[in-house]
Design a protein around this nucleic acid. Structure first.
Lengths: 384, 384
DNA sequence: CGTTTTTGTTCTCGACACGAACATAACAAG
DNA sequence: CTTGTTATGTTCGTGTCGAGAACAAAAACG
């Protein structure tokens, strides 16, 4: 929102509203519907759309008529309009995709990397291979906290507060955030949390990363390192955590907790497959594996209940291992959650939902923050 | 913000911005400063202020000249403009105050009550005794969660989901929220948390109530019952809590925890004085009291550290017993907090601050939410 | 084939903020 | 005491915006 507010800003403001509506909509809508949606006249809508078409931001295509009335046009992304690239940087692979206004994604390239910051150079090269005039912003999802938005710490790659301003120096405009937060954002914007005012999302992998989602925005905290819900002592563990504290929730939930149960050292190498193996065995009837799964689910539910007491989410969505946990042990999770809820809340517990964006969460979320950087008053004023 | 956005809405929008600036400012400012602040011309500022003076919302008084230049006027609340009443409804007393635009408060009346919902009738009568044409909104602070904004539960008064729509039926427009949240809002708007993007506040009394403050707004959750941070199992207690769960943080922090240490049943009668007595004894050198205080402070710090991991506040402010705890045991709290912080956060722990609004927190916060109801586009459009 | 329905288009109108030019009221310097 | 200097208030003309009304256009309906 601009400091000043003149008539010209008014026009831009309405155009941002329109673009945002197109981007957020589940289905394309017509110009007449847009006018109703924004509460403006058909004449005004025509003017707004006209300028946006001129700026190659929106495109009008004939809509198949439905019932009576003069035919109208559907508002769709302009085929030559700006585009966003999204990067999902995972443990030893990465994915690059192009994403249109509205969220349609096209995978461009994937690759493996050597777990050193040189990976950023590789990915930059991949971006360059596909880069065109249309590229406006790159959204980047990585694991690990990014303190103050520019110091990246990925413990399982041994990256200790790597300076992103250097790594991203020759990149196009790039916005970056961590994968758990972006997965939550994706569920909030395009998944099972859509439309919720207060919600939470947790990605369960080796440990738990999460985010609080308020009105479709992922909260970042004062130093951009909010979301380490896994490092609260919610389940009474007495073990020491890799984070440097004792008793973290993550010690009882996720792949590391499953693996530790079978005498394996928690680690980032083969742990994920082993955890999947344990799930399979539990599903097949193995007693010990089933007990490990039970404990994992109960600890998950207990922590969710504790957090629900404090933050009162309408719903909680899970991704990663959490989806499997819901599939195999929904009742256990919900019971443990209820038990941890204050008595007066038990008649209305938060919904616990499997994420619907799935493994595309970080990529989808990265695209969302990239588009967030575009769909602003200032960007549009420059563009027009 | 209105659905539509016409030129007339533009004027109102700028007037809301101006009124909000006047309300939020620490010191009154002049019309010329207002123009600079809002980024508008002096002519436009004159028009805005003129209409607001006409509507009895702002008043201009000559400003003592500072240096050269034509003298200007200070923008102050209009002496006949709208007023807000704030009510602080405590355990067995209440306070009613009138609050001007800008936050200046005048206490109107105080009283005791019989701990039944009839107290609301008493307070309504007090409101009526002072009510005038100027009264616009009443802000009401009470303890206890208010589910969905209209079902009030105060366990220590034995109120079980009392229906506020009935109790407040014959009241003027009234907004209500709980005291801990409003105390946090007060710190955030007019106290030690002013200007922070992410902060937390905890009121420590018999137990712990708190709120997450984002950009000056207290978060309410999906059912308006967020903030029960005291009912997370953060300190490993094995006791059963009155809330119906085992192990709550509140069992180790606050007056109940202090009192229990000396074999007294936690309760809401004489517990507060006894807790103060224990503090005095600890200060005087009593070993046992000092140990109780130590444990309380350490448990407080530990919980704050856990929450800081998850929510990453820039600062945390405390009220109630928390102020005393900071005064007597700041180092213990900070050390326990640090110890619970993930290692990579320990070089930048959240500031732990004593609230500066003090016991006026709930009343001040109630006035803020009342003014929030006024300083809106819709209200101003009606008023002009 | 005329009617109904929905949308697009055109034109007028009132309102707004802006910018420039000018007026005003203090202080400062000589 | 007079004459700049400075900051602010005031006035007026301008460009742009969205609203609203009237009309045109294009489909479906009976």
């Amino acid at each position: 929102m601009p400091q000043t507010m003149t008539s010209a800003d008014l026009r831009i403001r309405n155009q941002v509203r329109l673009l945002r509506a197109v981007h957020d909509a589940a289905e394309p809508f017509t110009r007449a519907e847009a006018a109703r949606l924004l509460g403006i006249g058909r004449n005004t809508a025509a003017a707004l759309v006209g300028e946006l078409e001129q700026a190659r931001l929106l495109h009008e295509v004939p809509a198949e008529s439905s019932g009576r009335g003069r035919p109208t046009t559907l508002l769709v992304p302009h085929p030559e309009g700006p585009q966003v690239f999204a990067v999902d940087f995972r443990e030893d692979t990465w994915t690059l995709a192009a994403v249109e206004l509205g969220g349609a994604a096209t995978e461009l390239e994937t690759g493996e990397h050597d777990r050193t910051p040189a990976a950023f150079t590789e990915i930059r090269a991949a971006v360059a291979r596909h880069e065109s005039e249309r590229l406006a912003v790159v959204g980047f999802a990585t694991s690990g906290p990014i303190r103050d938005g520019h110091r990246l710490h990925i413990s399982h790659l041994g990256w200790d507060e790597v300076e992103l301003d250097t790594l991203l120096a020759d990149w196009p405009t790039t916005v970056i955030d961590n994968d758990a937060r972006l997965a939550g954002l994706a569920e909030s914007r395009r998944g099972v949390l859509r439309g919720m005012g207060t919600a939470m999302h947790f990605h369960i992998d080796f440990d738990i990363g999460g985010t609080l989602l308020l009105a479709g925005d992922a909260q970042r905290g004062g130093h951009n390192i909010a979301g380490e819900f896994g490092h609260m002592p919610l389940t009474g563990s007495t073990l020491e955590c890799m984070c440097g504290v004792r008793g973290c929730w993550s010690l009882d939930v996720g792949a590391n907790a499953l693996v530790r149960r079978f005498g394996k050292e928690p680690g980032y190498g083969t742990g994920r497959e082993l955890a999947q193996e344990i799930l399979r065995r539990a599903e097949a009837g193995d007693k010990e594996a089933a007990a490990a799964l039970d404990d994992n689910a109960a600890a998950l539910g207990k922590g969710l209940g504790a957090l629900a007491n404090a933050l009162d989410p309408e719903a909680i969505s899970l991704s990663g291992l959490g989806v499997e946990l819901i599939r195999l042990r929904r009742n256990l999770i919900e019971d443990a959650c209820r038990e941890q809820l204050m008595a007066f809340r038990r008649d209305d517990p938060p919904q616990i939902l499997a994420g619907t964006v799935g493994s595309a969460g970080p990529l989808t979320g990265a695209a969302e923050i990239a588009w967030d950087a575009i769909l602003t008053h200032d960007w549009l004023r420059e563009r027009l």
